[in-house]
Design a protein around this nucleic acid. Structure first.
Length: 136
DNA sequence: GCCAACGTTGGC
DNA sequence: GCCAACGTTGGC
């Protein structure tokens, strides 16, 4: 069981929309590191859903519903997609500011590589963020 | 295989 | 809307 974090611009695809859809394809990733992370996802892995540009906060938790398959949005075989389903909305969203301010999260991949759209989260970091979200 | 140019992302 | 950071592309 591993933990991840995905980013989405709320204008493009928001958490609210995701909850309504009950499920989504996580596609359109065009970065090798992010792609490798997608490929490493196992069914049941949990994933923080982060709003970039607008909000700048983790708003919910999703889970991997289906492991990687070829990205249907491109004929290029290099890229993959996964299916995600929403698990729960955070009682208190965790902002980027909060995470930056927390010494325990200084190695968080999101903070070190802000441009990576799919990044790993360690179990320790996961627990810290759950705590900040009011789920500790 | 290197490196400059360019495009994209995302925080501010 | 700007700009810095970084990944990718393409010429040599």
């Amino acid at each position: 069981m591993a933990y991840w974090l995905v980013k989405s611009e709320p204008f493009k695809y928001s958490w609210t929309q995701f909850r309504k859809d009950k499920k989504t394809f996580w596609d359109g990733v065009r970065n090798y590191q992010a792609r490798n992370n997608l490929r490493d996802m196992e069914k049941g892995d949990e994933v923080f859903f982060y709003h970039s540009n607008e909000g700048l906060e983790i708003v919910g938790i999703a889970a991997v519903a289906k492991t990687h398959y070829p990205d249907p949005t491109t004929p290029d075989p290099r890229w993959v997609a996964v299916d995600l389903k929403p698990v729960k909305t955070l009682p208190k969203p965790v902002t980027l500011e909060q995470m930056k301010a927390d010494k325990r999260l200084e190695h968080l991949a999101l903070l070190r590589q802000p441009r990576l759209s799919v990044s790993p989260v360690t179990e320790k970091e996961w627990q810290v963020i759950l705590g900040l979200a009011g789920l500790g």
